[in-house]
Design a protein around this nucleic acid. Structure first.
Lengths: 239, 239
DNA sequence: AATTATTTGTCCGTATGTATG
DNA sequence: CCATACATACGGACAAATAAT
């Protein structure tokens, strides 16, 4: 993210997502944008191409470039996701993300129980053992926790699932950085787990379900874990 | 999809996805692409910008434009999705899509049971009644079935979920058009439902769960319905 | 139904920026 | 530190499409 067109994509993208450029509105014409942002028309065109690939705008000859409705946005684009999360008016979007996660992560756990190779299982085991060793070390726990979920995810052998959940997690990390002050969050999952012992037991159930290849149970226990996270989240936001 | 840069995005995008331009490979430089495809450098630059927004390439000064690994691709971009599905070597990707669907659609049904407004319920009811009336009319069934699922989805009140599942469904329609000859598929879901009566009963269970606001049951029954679709799919592909 | 005005789309000559060797 | 090779950036010109008259 350094060249001019990327910068312009970000500036315009944010304005669209915050509603400053509302749905259906026509953007200033290329020449005006070029002039206003002090870049060449080439740069403006590239930026518009980027925005249109993100589903934010559509250009038509003579009619100008119009802002598309939210339903057209490429929500899984990390930039779009970030801008939406950073927009004050979209804070409940975080809940929506968590709901999608609640759909996907249990399914990934099921698939992992079904398909994990020996190599996958070793990684999952290793991460779980490190979890057990780390109940007193918040930082080590966070890392092990991250690895644990990562190993399960990779064991699902479903590229689309893997990619989607990884994007989702990045978004959650971003939102956490926004919500809590930077000092408080020490790692991906740790801020959630108020009671580490309880969390460890929940992880154990998932772990055991996967190594015994009990698909259903793995899904159920993963779901329970995320449901707990969700409840904690709701509490935070209800205040 | 008509201007030159869009065409070029499609040509290059397909070559990347089929592996003709493999991961890590450096694309021909802008000038050569411009020459080879007989377009201006402006058009090439716009196309590269599009491809980079899709996560397919990254440009670096002096080093050229390189193809990114699959893990960077924007899988939920409908173009990417389409090209992947149309690639012979990626046929099992369809199964992956269905697995994601199995994670999301039951969750959407749960949320619908929880949040459906009166207006939502009316639409769901209407679609279900039309399903009942259409057991002998394949075309009417397909439309009602589409509306039924659409109404449930919209009742979830989760924009991200709605957008994702809609994209997913479009992809499934595309893959079906590829798999079966154009003559055979008459609608979004109809090719699945070999026994319409059984399908109707499954829909009824979902319908009743939602109007009685039984979240869990709605999720379970939706899951069963999709699981059935999946089994049918697997049979087709195993032949 | 034909004309015009406006805006995107396309082309290309030129110049600058940046990392590599 | 210089030369090289590539992407990046600039801007003037013209083509094409289409909304407005």
């Amino acid at each position: 993210m350094k060249n001019r067109s990327d910068q312009l994509v970000e500036e315009l993208g944010r304005k669209i997502i915050t509603g400053e450029y509302a749905n259906g509105k026509i953007l200033p014409k290329v020449e005006e944008l070029s002039e206003h942002y002090e870049v060449s028309r080439t740069v403006v065109r590239e930026a518009l191409k980027g925005l249109s690939t993100m589903g934010l705008v559509r250009s038509n000859q003579r009619a100008g470039t119009t802002v598309l409705p939210r339903s057209n946005w490429q929500w899984w684009n990390l930039d779009v996701l970030t801008w939406v999360l950073e927009d004050e008016d979209n804070r409940d979007f975080l809940l929506h993300l968590t709901e999608v996660r609640m759909g996907l992560e249990p399914m990934a756990a099921e698939l992992a129980a079904k398909r994990a190779t020996e190599e996958d299982l070793i990684k999952i085991k290793d991460a779980f053992y490190r979890l057990q060793q780390s109940i007193d070390d918040e930082k080590a726990w966070a890392i092990a926790d991250y690895d644990f979920h990562e190993a399960i995810l990779n064991a699902s052998q479903n590229d689309l699932m893997i990619n989607t959940i990884k994007t989702l997690r990045k978004a959650l990390v971003i939102s956490r950085e926004i919500t809590f002050s930077a000092a408080k969050n020490s790692g991906p999952e740790s801020s959630y787990e108020s009671s580490t012992i309880e969390a460890l037991e929940r992880h154990r159930l998932i772990y055991e379900a996967i190594i015994t290849r009990d698909e259903n149970l793995a899904g159920i226990k993963m779901r329970e874990l995320i449901q707990r996270i969700r409840r904690i989240l709701e509490k935070i936001y209800d205040n």
